[in-house]
Computed example of a mutant assay.
Amino acid sequence: MDKNKQAIAHMQENKFEEAAALFTEVIEENPNDPVGYINFGNLLFHVNDLPRAQRFFEKAIELDEHAATAYYGLGNLFYEQALYPKAQENFQKAVELGLEEADVYFLLGMTFQHQEHYKLALPYLLRATELDPEDADSLFQYGLTLAQSDHLKDAEEIFRKVLTIETNHSDANYNLGVIALFEDRLEQALAFFEEALRIQPEHVLAANGKEKTEGLLKK
């Protein structure tokens, strides 16, 4: 096993000092190879040393401006700090350079969602669900963004799909309740709100939706 792989294995076992020592050796032995810097950047990001992580990712890009995973690392770093335009720029660069992973598409879509550019988020969140169709979080966020873009029928289909993967998904039930309420399917809406509250009794929005629906049913 080479030193990079050994160090990554140490990271996975939360042996961060051992990982850092090996990554340092890798960089000293191959100072012009961006991989060591990217891996050390990932380690620093993992232990929340964001300023140093940024320097390592930037050094990797300085050595190889086509290092897609370095841009992905920077994107994660800026996303963590809620610097969504900067995160977006780096995730887009990673995608342009050929990084074809569900996570980068998901996070790129989420940068647009956080900036309330819902329609721009859709193709990236869709791609994330295509690359990892069993990921309930990606699927839910795609459904939510469809709903925010006024594609309610498509959103309902996606939320139902989320429930086939994760049956106890309170937010999927809540959003199905909202769509049903919007379309005057009051009995259905009530059932979805009640299911959301069964799963998560403190779900304030579902409680409000239930109360509103019960009021409409009494009229």
Rank of each mutant, 00 (worst) to 15 (best):
residue 144 L to F: 14
residue 149 S to M: 04
residue 125 L to Q: 05
residue 101 E to L: 12
residue 105 Y to E: 00
residue 139 L to M: 12
residue 111 T to P: 02
residue 50 L to R: 03
residue 127 R to F: 07
residue 120 L to W: 09
residue 54 Q to K: 15
residue 153 K to E: 15
residue 60 A to V: 11
residue 118 Y to N: 12
residue 65 E to P: 09
residue 130 E to V: 11
residue 151 H to P: 00
residue 155 A to Y: 04
residue 147 A to F: 08
residue 89 E to M: 08
residue 62 E to Y: 14
residue 106 F to Y: 15
residue 63 L to G: 03
residue 154 D to S: 13
residue 39 N to P: 07
residue 105 Y to C: 01
residue 38 I to Y: 01
residue 42 N to E: 13
residue 145 T to C: 13
residue 77 L to Y: 00
residue 131 L to H: 04
residue 129 T to G: 11
residue 132 D to M: 13
residue 49 D to W: 02
residue 33 D to A: 08
residue 36 G to R: 05
residue 130 E to N: 05
residue 81 Q to V: 03
residue 145 T to W: 06
residue 44 L to K: 05
residue 102 A to C: 12
residue 108 L to K: 05
residue 126 L to I: 06
residue 63 L to R: 05
residue 71 Y to C: 05
residue 134 E to M: 13
residue 100 E to W: 00
residue 59 K to Y: 02
residue 89 E to R: 04
residue 39 N to R: 13
residue 87 A to R: 11
residue 104 V to E: 07
residue 138 S to F: 14
residue 58 E to S: 14
residue 49 D to V: 11
residue 52 R to I: 09
residue 61 I to H: 02
residue 94 A to D: 08
residue 132 D to Y: 07
residue 95 V to S: 05
residue 40 F to M: 11
residue 72 Y to I: 01
residue 156 E to D: 11
residue 147 A to C: 01
residue 105 Y to K: 01
residue 82 A to T: 14
residue 84 Y to T: 06
residue 46 H to R: 14
residue 44 L to R: 04
residue 139 L to W: 00
residue 37 Y to C: 04
residue 100 E to N: 14
residue 115 Q to W: 02
residue 64 D to S: 15
residue 91 F to N: 02
residue 125 L to R: 06
residue 30 N to C: 01
residue 138 S to E: 08
residue 77 L to A: 02
residue 61 I to E: 08
residue 29 E to L: 14
residue 111 T to E: 03
residue 91 F to Q: 08
residue 136 A to H: 09
residue 98 G to W: 05
residue 62 E to L: 14
residue 102 A to W: 12
residue 114 H to R: 12
residue 48 N to Y: 08
residue 155 A to G: 05
residue 119 K to N: 09
residue 119 K to M: 09
residue 41 G to W: 02
residue 127 R to M: 12
residue 157 E to P: 00
residue 70 A to Q: 07
residue 84 Y to W: 13
residue 59 K to D: 01
residue 65 E to I: 11
residue 157 E to L: 10
residue 63 L to E: 01
residue 55 R to L: 14
residue 148 Q to I: 00
residue 141 Q to P: 01
residue 58 E to M: 10
residue 65 E to Y: 12
residue 38 I to T: 10
residue 80 E to T: 13
residue 106 F to M: 03
residue 70 A to C: 10
residue 42 N to Y: 12
residue 115 Q to V: 06
residue 82 A to Y: 13
residue 87 A to T: 10
residue 130 E to R: 04
residue 73 G to Y: 00
residue 129 T to P: 09
residue 132 D to I: 09
residue 75 G to W: 04
residue 65 E to K: 15
residue 40 F to T: 00
residue 32 N to P: 02
residue 49 D to A: 10
residue 73 G to P: 00
residue 148 Q to C: 07
residue 124 Y to R: 03
residue 134 E to S: 13
residue 65 E to F: 06
residue 101 E to H: 08
residue 153 K to H: 12
residue 157 E to K: 14
